[in-house]
Simulated assay, not measured.
Amino acid sequence: MAALDLKPVSTRSALLTLLLGAEVPRLSTRELVAAASVVGFAEPTVRVALSRMTAAGDVVRDEEGAYRLSDRLVARQRRQEQAAHPSLRDWDGDWELVAVTTAGRTASDRADLRAALTDLRLAEVREGLWTRPANLDLDWPAAVDDVCERFVGAPVSEPADLARRLWNLDDWAATARALLDSTATDDPVLRFTACATSGRHLLTDPVLPADLLPANWPGDALRASHVAYKQWIVEMRRALTQTAQSSA
């Protein structure tokens, strides 16, 4: 399989990836500089990026000089964690069905609802009608329940055919396999870029029941690779920070 043409990760994206994948809610400047250095970002560049990210509201700097994600990005961190560890339940053939029943909403409200339903991994059958297999424990936000009615039922058509119509499974799988190939490298910058891209790609995994997926579906493999790399980043950052502290 041909390798992906991975776009270089900006300093901002790299620092956000490190914070989004951190095991603690805040990281010091020293920890961020240490981790970023391994994947090709020099200390002056990191410090400038942190200043700009603070001004833009991406991160918040506390009194001790450590950085944490803004509330907006904490929600993104939660979505990424759910993408890496989806909450599954046994599937009995039922599908979730969501029908938009409230008219007169603004364009912004409609866009927010579409984003919320997409984050829940639903697909749009037609305008105002969304569905997915009922194999996930979903946390339905008020933004959905306030303007929609929810039902559970089973499609008359072949479920696997319906899944293929609603999601481009072949393209998703091809990208996932290419990302897995890209992570099997000794190049730390390329591996980090593939990991950051994997996190975004996992957000679009429909997480369907096995019966509805093509053979050799790479979703679980990509999740395992992504989680393992995030753990490596954590351990590497700890080791570099301890080394810097002992030599200071």
Rank of each mutant, 00 (worst) to 15 (best):
T102P: 03
K230R: 15
V59E: 04
R79N: 04
R30K: 14
L27N: 02
L18E: 04
L213E: 04
D187R: 10
Y229D: 02
R121E: 00
L202A: 12
D205T: 07
A142L: 11
R47N: 00
W91N: 07
G65L: 10
D171F: 06
D90H: 14
R61N: 05
K230L: 15
G199S: 11
T241V: 10
S246P: 01
V60Q: 11
S157D: 14
A224W: 03
P8M: 09
R200W: 14
F192Y: 11
A116G: 01
R26P: 05
A142D: 11
K7I: 11
V39P: 09
T17Q: 05
T29H: 02
S247E: 12
L162R: 08
N216H: 14
E149L: 03
A210R: 13
R12K: 15
S28P: 08
E64I: 13
P188G: 09
R114C: 01
R12T: 13
A103Q: 12
D90F: 06
V234A: 13
A14E: 01
R121D: 00
V125T: 06
R238D: 15
R72Q: 11
S87G: 05
T185R: 08
T29Q: 13
A196I: 02
G199K: 02
A3E: 10
S182I: 06
V207R: 11
A239S: 13
P188H: 07
R121M: 01
A3C: 02
D92W: 06
R126G: 04
P44M: 09
R26Q: 14
A107G: 07
W172I: 10
L138Q: 04
S247D: 07
S87D: 12
L136N: 01
L120K: 00
A116Q: 12
A184M: 09
Q245V: 14
P206Q: 03
A248I: 04
T183P: 01
T131L: 08
S108P: 00
W217M: 08
S247P: 01
N135Y: 00
L27F: 01
P25E: 06
P214T: 06
L113Q: 07
D171H: 15
P86A: 09
R132K: 11
P141F: 06
R132Y: 00
H201K: 13
R89H: 07
D58G: 10
Q245G: 03
E235M: 12
S87F: 09
T29N: 03
A34N: 06
L122F: 10
G65F: 13
D220F: 12
V207Y: 13
A176T: 05
E63A: 15
P133F: 00
S13T: 09
T118N: 03
D170I: 06
R126V: 12
V227K: 14
A176N: 10
G128L: 06
R237V: 03
Q231P: 01
A107E: 09
